[in-house]
């Protein structure tokens, strides 16, 4: 919050994570998943959380979402302490988590229709976001009749229709093939630009992080903590073949591998 007052031009701080510790009590002893994590996110920023498997990215995101309680520290949205899940923070899961008994239309309208929004209003909202993700023709299909990419579009539209301020995405495109992933990345950037959402996007692909993010937050493991906070100032749309893009990608990959050490490879380096 301090930065917001010192710098007049910068957008306001929307999310403030401070001194976050998380210890899981597993059956075979405690697991320290996060240690003193601090993170400040300004409104409209696109943040990528990057790190090797098991470094606590999902844990951090789930604490921000309010699904998990921190052992120590706090998460604040617009200065209000987070005490549980809320419609201000929308989560997009890797495995979609759509309601299988609802059609595409009903899934997207789920949030508004549970907030006593008039049904005509819900219909208008749903139509708008269904069109935004290009699923109008599939309005009455059930999730099991959709492809993975379509399901993830529904999941994104569902959060957008609920008017979330912060979009939390946990490896949302991890289960998709390369072509679908590229298409969805482009759509996500377009949506982010038009809606001015704040996005926190977890990935273990360096390329995806550099392609999407304003800031790449690099995490390291055991215990999970934030290691680097890299601003990506490449102009958009970004060209993955450009020299600057690849220089950034290489330097971030090096930072990642230096922590894992030795011969062990990070998932990120295996990315094409």
């Amino acid at each position: 919050m301090l930065d917001a007052t010192t710098n007049r031009d910068a957008p306001p701080v929307i999310l403030e994570v401070s001194g976050l510790n998380k210890v899981y009590q597993a059956s075979n002893g405690p697991v320290e998943a996060l240690r003193s994590v601090d993170l400040t996110v300004r409104k409209g920023e696109f943040i990528c959380l990057l790190g090797a498997s098991g470094c606590g990215k999902s844990t951090l995101l789930r604490i921000i979402a309010g699904f998990e309680e921190a052992t120590q520290g706090s998460v604040g949205v617009y200065g209000c302490e987070v005490r549980g899940p809320g419609p201000d923070r929308g989560m997009v899961f890797q495995d979609y988590a759509l309601f299988p008994w609802l059609t595409v239309r009903q899934n997207i309208g789920f949030g508004p229709s549970h907030r006593r929004v008039a049904s005509q209003e819900v219909d208008k909202l749903t139509d708008r976001f269904m069109a935004m993700v290009g699923l109008t023709a599939f309005a009455d299909r059930y999730p099991h009749q959709l492809s993975g990419g379509m399901k993830q579009r529904v999941a994104i539209a569902r959060v957008l229709a609920n008017d979330a301020d912060i979009l939390l995405m946990d490896e949302p495109f991890g289960a998709l093939d390369a072509l679908t992933r590229a298409a969805l990345q482009e759509e996500l950037i377009e949506i982010w630009r038009t809606t001015k959402l704040t996005v926190i996007f977890v990935t273990h692909s360096v390329e995806e992080a550099v392609l999407l993010a304003d800031r790449v937050v690099v995490m390291s493991s055991s215990p999970g903590r934030i290691d680097q906070d890299v601003e990506i100032e490449l102009p958009r749309p970004r060209d993955v073949a450009s020299v600057e893009f690849n220089r950034l990608r290489r330097s971030i990959t090096q930072q990642l591998t230096s922590h894992v050490g030795g011969g062990r490879k990070v998932a990120a380096t295996a990315d094409s």
Partner: peptide
């Protein structure tokens, strides 16, 4: 019931008694 569905309902603002009708029963 998949715990994710409860999380999804929670972040969409559905909780308490609504949860029984909208998630628990159909699931």
């Amino acid at each position: 019931v998949d715990a994710r569905l409860f999380e999804a309902a929670g972040m969409l603002g559905c909780s308490g008694p609504q949860l029984f009708r909208s998630v628990v029963l159909p699931a």
